[in-house]
Simulated assay, not measured.
Amino acid sequence: MIGNLKPLEIVLIIAVILLLFGAKKLPDMARSLGKSARILKSEAKAMKKDDEAAAPAPQPADQEPAQPTTHRTIQAAPGDVTSSRPVTDTNRTTQS
C-alpha cells in the first residue's frame, strides 16, 4: 500500500499529522514509540530464549518419554494445614 503513494500524497499526510498533533508533541510521540518498540523487541527475545531453554532434549527412539508427576496440595480451608494432603493428578482435564 505504501508503494502506491505518490510523493505529494506523503507530504499531505505528514502535513495533516503536523496540524493534528502539533510540532511540540511529535518528538515526544516518536520517543515513546521508539521506547515501546525496544521493549517489544526485548520481550520477544526473552520469550524466544525461554522457549529454547524449555525445549526438551531429543531422546533416543527406543525410550518412551517419561511422564512427569505433578504434586498438588488440596486444603480443606485456607490456612488449614492439618487436613491438607498431597495429590497426584495424572489426567488433569476439565469437564463442562
Rank of each mutant, 00 (worst) to 15 (best):
M1F: 08
G3N: 13
G3D: 11
N4F: 08
L5G: 00
L5A: 03
P7S: 04
E9W: 00
V11Y: 01
V11Q: 04
V11C: 00
L12R: 07
I13H: 08
V16M: 07
V16T: 12
L19H: 12
L20C: 09
K24M: 07
K25M: 11
D28A: 15
A30H: 05
R31D: 09
R31K: 14
G34N: 14
G34I: 10
S36G: 11
S36Q: 14
S36W: 11
L40C: 06
K41G: 04
K41Q: 09
S42Q: 04
A44N: 01
A46E: 13
M47S: 05
M47R: 04
M47I: 01
K48Y: 03
K48M: 03
D50L: 10
E52K: 05
E52R: 03
A54N: 09
P56F: 01
A61T: 06
A61L: 08
D62P: 04
Q63F: 09
Q63A: 08
E64P: 01
P65M: 01
Q67C: 10
Q67E: 08
Q67S: 10
T69N: 14
T69A: 14
T70I: 11
T70W: 11
T70V: 13
R72P: 00
T73K: 15
T73N: 13
I74V: 15
Q75H: 15
Q75T: 12
A76M: 06
A77S: 05
G79L: 03
G79P: 02
D80V: 05
D80P: 02
V81H: 12
T82N: 12
S84M: 13
R85F: 08
R85A: 12
T88G: 05
T88S: 09
D89H: 03
D89F: 13
T90P: 08
N91S: 12
R92D: 10
T93V: 13
T93L: 07
T93Q: 12
Q95C: 09
Q95N: 12
S96N: 13
